[in-house]
């Protein structure tokens, strides 16, 4: 966490701005409710009581791209859906991250054919790939934690 030093019981916490910003970003990340196919069912599973993604500050799924900062592409992206997906990504405010959940979103999976995009990274930049067809809810949670690690290490200098 971003707390570097705690000075006695004066109630003052000192940290760097970079760490404070990254800390707040990781702990209130709002994913977009973007279920495409089979993986969406496991994403719902990760939301529900048994796996409970809200332990990581991820429970607030937003249906609107304008309110969210993480896009979890859960499922296969067809050629017809691809421009829609890019459009949604463009509508998200910066800073934004993308998780490609499942084999289909990561590389096309078992569907190597005319209809399916061979990996969502052809149209949007992806931060974390999660393998599995579909990944277990634990896999998704692991992917989210990996993303948290990445975000908490971000530098001011590299911000767009």
């Amino acid at each position: 966490m971003g707390i570097e030093q705690k000075t006695g019981n004066t109630g003052v916490v000192t940290t760097t701005l970079e760490q404070a910003v990254n800390w707040s970003r990781t702990n209130s990340m709002w994913p977009m409710l973007f279920g495409l196919a089979c993986c969406a069912i496991e994403m719902m599973g990760a939301q529900a009581a048994n796996y409970d993604m809200s332990r990581f500050g991820m429970e607030l799924m937003r249906a609107s791209p304008r309110q969210s900062d993480l896009m979890i592409v859960a499922g296969r992206v067809s050629q017809k859906m691809a421009p829609v997906l890019r459009n949604l990504y463009d509508q998200m405010p910066d800073p934004k991250w993308v998780i490609a959940m499942g084999d289909c979103a990561a590389c096309g999976g078992v569907f190597n054919n005319y209809a399916i995009l061979q990996g969502v990274d052809e149209i949007v930049p992806v931060d974390v790939y999660i393998s599995g067809c579909p990944p277990r809810p634990e896999g998704l949670i692991n992917g989210v934690i990996t993303l948290h690690k990445k975000v908490s290490g971000e530098k001011f200098a590299k911000w767009k």
Binding site: Q79, K80, G108, N112, N113, Y114, A115, Q118
Partner: peptide, 21 residues
């Protein structure tokens, strides 16, 4: 019904390539 309206060709014909990568 299924493909985008401006798609060329009819995918399930046998002379249409699978179009894999």
């Amino acid at each position: 019904l299924l493909m985008p309206p401006n798609w060329e060709g009819h995918p399930l014909r046998k002379d249409y390539p699978l179009g894999y990568e």
